[in-house]
């Protein structure tokens, strides 16, 4: 293992995990939404390091593009639904921190100890690999592919039906000036 790739790996890990901590801890929900972007980019970089070229592009398009925009739209539609001066987390915080640290430590311990049967094979180049995936999706795995597309169609129609307003307009959010006075200590 040469130092250059180790350095790239460590910086990708930091780029993924540090923004993730800000996503779950930052006081401003809009900041949390924007912290998702470097986290998704870090995961995309890890996919590239794993030589999963198709999923590198898919991660950029779907997560850093579509899902992030969807989350930010929902944040804007529910603007000022919560008073930013109140705490953003519930009283389970110490218990949750303990449980999640224990989970991370335990699973890391187990997977470092486990004797994985690592092969010396390497993935095929990008073009060959993507072509094989495309062929698999219309031959052996056509049924899962069609089920996935049906699921997307159902989600599309379901989201439209759920979000369609037939119960009057969305409540008017409180004016910004009322809430911004105590947010100087945000983040």
């Amino acid at each position: 293992m040469d130092t250059a790739s180790l350095l790239v790996f460590i910086s990708l890990g930091v780029l993924t995990l540090v923004p993730a901590l800000f996503v779950v801890n930052s006081r401003s929900i809009v900041h949390a939404g924007f912290w998702l972007l470097p986290c998704f980019l870090g995961v995309a970089g890890l996919y590239a390091a794993l030589e999963a070229h198709f999923f590198f592009v898919t991660q950029l398009l779907i997560y850093a593009g579509a899902i992030l925009v969807l989350v930010l739209f929902a944040l804007m539609l529910t603007r000022n639904a919560m008073n930013p001066t109140e705490s953003q987390s519930n009283r389970l915080k110490p218990v949750a921190a303990l449980v999640c640290t224990a989970f991370a430590a335990g699973s890391t311990f187990i997977l470092v100890k486990h004797p994985w049967a690592i092969t010396t094979d390497t993935p095929k180049p990008a073009g060959v690999q993507t072509e094989a995936l495309g062929n698999a999706l219309i031959q052996n795995y056509a049924v899962p592919f069609e089920v996935a597309s049906l699921l997307l169609l159902a989600a599309l129609i379901g989201a439209i039906v759920l979000a369609k307003s037939d119960r009057g307009p969305v409540p008017e959010p409180a004016p910004l000036a009322d809430l911004t006075s105590g947010t100087a200590g945000g983040e």
Binding site: V23, V24, I29, A32, G33, V71, A74, L75, T78, A81, M82, S87, Q88, S89, N90, L92, K93, A96, V99, C100
Partner: peptide, 8 residues
Amino acid sequence: ITRRNAIA
């Protein structure tokens, strides 16, 4: 577990 805001 800890977030109170449903979007979070």
